[in-house]
């Protein structure tokens, strides 16, 4: 059973003000636990006419939307719909052909230490196979002037303390995925962007991620997660954004999208049918 975000927010009381610019106190190094009091500066992702063309192909076609804090937003669409390209543009890795992707009004690259604003899991293979998990996170922390104590905290949070001294090339896919999540949490960021986070995880890991995403959203963070696992999204997301052929197909609360359908899978096929044919 999942607890809807608005209920969590009620439990959490003071850390869940409605003003998304509100600050609440919790210094670095407090462990990012699930209790209220987390420092979350609420942050908004805004896509403004976001478009990406690769030659004649339009990968992302004029996306206008907002991803709000305090809830888990699922990002769905068939392969090639433009999800990953959109996420890469939000992170400043791909340059939009036109339009903008903004975090509280500024592009990703305008932030001095962006890992403190946005934690991203793009692909499990973001680690040099010859480097240990701990060294990877140490370098990552140093790059954004994040206190080194956070490294051991996120390693523990991801259940990697025991393997942290082993070279990442020897790790399983699931452990790599956990390391990616640990990296995303490193800067205690108000925004989390997770591309297929449960990929390669065992049931234990899937459950961990599910709880973690709920917890992070409950703390007032913005959680944007792309996935093909519709059943997983159905139990995790509060809100869904569905795209097909680079265009926005739906941007609505989960229950509205589910309305009149037996499952998210049915609702998803009803939505994307047209886009798959084109």
């Amino acid at each position: 059973m999942r607890t809807p975000a608005h209920l969590l927010r009620q439990f959490n009381g003071p850390c869940t003000g409605h003003d998304f610019r509100q600050y609440v106190r919790l210094p670095f190094g407090s462990g990012g636990g699930g209790t209220c009091g987390s420092t979350v500066r609420r942050m908004l992702i805004t896509l403004d006419g976001l478009t990406k063309r690769f030659g004649a192909t339009v990968a992302v076609d004029g996306l206008d939307l907002e991803v709000r804090p305090g809830r888990v937003t699922g990002f769905l669409g068939p392969n090639g719909a433009g999800k990953s390209t959109t996420l890469r543009m939000i992170l400043g890795l791909d340059r939009p052909t036109s339009g903008r992707a903004l975090l509280d009004g500024r592009p990703y690259s305008a932030y001095e230490f962006p890992l403190r604003k946005v934690g991203a899991l793009l692909e499990a293979k973001g680690v040099h196979p010859g480097r240990t998990g701990r060294s990877h996170l140490r370098a990552m922390a140093r790059s954004n002037a994040i206190p080194a104590v956070r490294v051991d905290e996120v390693l523990a949070q991801a259940g990697l303390t025991g393997v942290a001294a082993k070279r990442a090339g020897t790790w399983s896919l699931g452990m790599g995925q956990r390391l990616g999540i640990a990296g995303a949490l490193l800067g205690d960021p108000p925004v989390l962007i997770l591309d297929e986070p449960v990929n390669g995880l065992d049931p234990d890991g899937v459950r961990w991620i599910r709880g973690l995403m709920r917890e992070l959203a409950g703390q007032g963070r913005t959680v944007l997660v792309s996935s093909h696992l519709l059943s997983e999204m159905q139990v995790t997301a509060d809100h869904l954004i569905v795209i097909g052929n680079g265009r926005l197909l739906a941007d609505a609360p989960l229950d509205r999208i589910l309305a009149g359908h037996a499952s998210l899978e049915d609702a998803y096929y009803a939505l994307t049918e047209g886009s798959a044919l084109r």
Partner: peptide
């Protein structure tokens, strides 16, 4: 080794 994207997000 595919770390460039991660590096550029840092």
């Amino acid at each position: 080794t595919g770390t460039m994207r991660a590096t550029l997000t840092w």
